[in-house]
Every structure is written in C-alpha cells, then in structure tokens.
Design a protein around this nucleic acid. Structure first.
Lengths: 157, 157
DNA sequence: GTTAGTCAAGACTAAAATGGTCGGAGATCT
DNA sequence: AGATCTCCGACCATTTTAGTCTTGACTAAC
C-alpha cells in the first residue's frame, strides 16, 4: 500500500544523480542529458524524459537545449524536498481523498464520515516528514563513481 | 500521491462503525451485517462485502454465518491499528518497491540505487505513524446516532 | 546556412490495479 | 427438510499506470 509510482522513483533517482554530478568535487555544474541519466540508472529513456519534463515545468530543474544541452538542478539539493518532487510528479498528497475534491465525485460518505479527521492528521504528519527530507539527504554518504565525460560514447551494446 | 484505495477507506469506515455499535452504552456485542454497514455509510454493498471478507481472513473481524449473522470486531478497537487494517486490504507497505520483491521484476536500478535507503527511513516512519493510531482513535469524540435495530427494515428507497 | 544533438509534446499500446457484479456455499430458523 | 439469510470466491469492466513512438522546436557547432 501507499506505493510510489515508478515515475516518482525515477524522478528521485534522476535528481539524486544530477545532484551528485553537479556538486561533486571535480566537475561542477555539468549539464547532464536524459540519455546519460537513463543509462546510468537503467531507466527507460522515453519515460524518464517525460518525468524530467514534468520536473522542468515545475522549475525543480532547468532545461538547456541544443548540443551539449541537458538539465541541471534548479536549486541547491538541500532546497529540493521530497515532498515537492513527489507533488510535481504525482499530484498533491491525498491520503483522505475527500480533501481535494472538486464538485464531482461527491463522496457520499462525507456526512457520517468519522475517519476523515484522523486521516487528515496522518496526512499532515506524512507531509511534514516528506518535507523534512531533501535531495541532499539522498546524496550524503554515497561515494558514487563519477562519470566524467561520457557524453558521446557509443554505449548502446 | 500516496492515495488510499476506496477499499481501504471503506474498511476503516466499517470498522469505525462496528466499533461504535459494539462499544456504545446500549447495545454491546451486536452483530452487524454487510448490508447495514453499507447503507449506513453509503458504500456499495458488494464492494464492502469483499472488503469485510479480507478483514475476516486476517482475523481483524469475525464472521458469523446464517440468518442474524454478520460481523463483529475480532479485537478491542484500541488493539486494531490502522497499519494492520491497511495491510490487510492493500498489502504490505511499500513506498520503495524494492523492499519486498521476489525474484522477478529485478529492479534493474538496485546496483546504483541511492534512494533506497532514505526511502526506507521514510517508510519506517510512516509505518510507525500508522501503527500508533487505532480504530479507537477514530471512534473518540464521535457522538454518532446509534441505529439500534434496523436489521430488516425495508430501507431501499 | 546546414547539420546534428537536445528538449517538448502529444498520441498510442499494453499491462496492471481498481471498482464493481454475479452465482454459489454454509448456517440458522421454521 | 425447506426456505431464507448470511458470507464466500470467482468473474468482468473501467481506470490508471508503464512504456513506446512520432513529430516538432530550439540551440549550438561546423
């Protein structure tokens, strides 16, 4: 239960990777492209592309077009919370559905709904939890082999 | 994101209702059947039936067959944690999929996966949160109009 | 200016999960 | 024993998700 979608996973992986590449000792502010991230993390390229698009639209990352283009983080890793990332990909948190509901899907139960209030508490706690953790936390303690310049290798074997 | 399924919602509603019926002043240990719960909470009967089945199989509730049969809670409301209920309905908690994975779906990312460890921490926190809350917490402070004996009313208008 | 590499955006397919429905098995009462 | 009321378990339809493909627009290098 409460599974994250693959897209969400991929988003976090990508951001973690970008953070590591950008903020490691040697190569600062290097732009990484979709293909590189996908290959390094064994993620289907096209799907990752869509994920990165969404992140770019939310200005979590910045896109740079053209040859030698790609993406860079839009903020410092410590300023990118997990909550923000997940929201960008999967929409707002909704343990209790009734909270963000439009006119349709009237939630016929609302009148007698005794579980709503407690669930909202749970939801609030989870949100706080996800907001307290950032991409930086995912980078820490990870050696990670830096791939310095593999922009145009013929690695498709 | 992190939405609960309708079934999970229904499970919690049903348990809350059963708890209220059983542990209110007047009528103790009354057996309630699927139809009553469904009508009282505006839940599709057949779907609720499946939910209650699952709960019964996990021994969260006890089933009693035959006329005047139905369900009663298998434990005190304070001993039924939300975590247990959700697990019964939606399977084990799996923010990070890779945690409970069989041989198939090998998670190609595992080798370089830097998000796994942090996510497990999040998951653990959430689990603790859900384990700390019980059906009793959902009953507290709820007046709730007790429906004393409506087993066989013709209420299907 | 041309070319090649990159992101952007959408339609499309396939598979899985979810929501919802059906007829049957077991138990109780008359 | 029969009728009725209940739970049980397999079944189908719809939605969501994962993944693919195609087309287009933008940018930098040559």
């Amino acid at each position: 239960m409460l599974k994250l979608s693959k897209k969400a996973d991929y988003a976090l992986m990508a951001l973690q990777y970008m953070g590591s590449v950008q903020f490691s000792d040697l190569t600062r502010a290097r732009v990484v492209n979709t293909k590189e991230i996908a290959e390094e993390n064994n993620i289907p390229v096209e799907l990752l592309a869509k994920v990165l698009q969404a992140l770019a639209k939310q200005e979590i990352i910045e896109s740079h077009n053209g040859p030698k283009g790609g993406y860079i983080l839009g903020h410092e890793p410590r300023d990118i919370t997990i909550a923000k990332v997940l929201e960008a990909i999967e929409g707002p948190l909704g343990i209790a559905d009734c909270y963000h509901e439009n006119d349709h899907s009237p939630c016929e139960q609302l009148e007698h709904c005794n579980i709503r209030t407690p669930l909202l508490k749970v939801q609030e706690s989870i949100y706080q939890l996800l907001s307290s953790m950032t991409i930086e936390d995912m980078m820490s303690g990870q050696p990670l082999i830096i791939v310095e310049s593999r922009k145009t290798e013929g690695v498709n074997s």
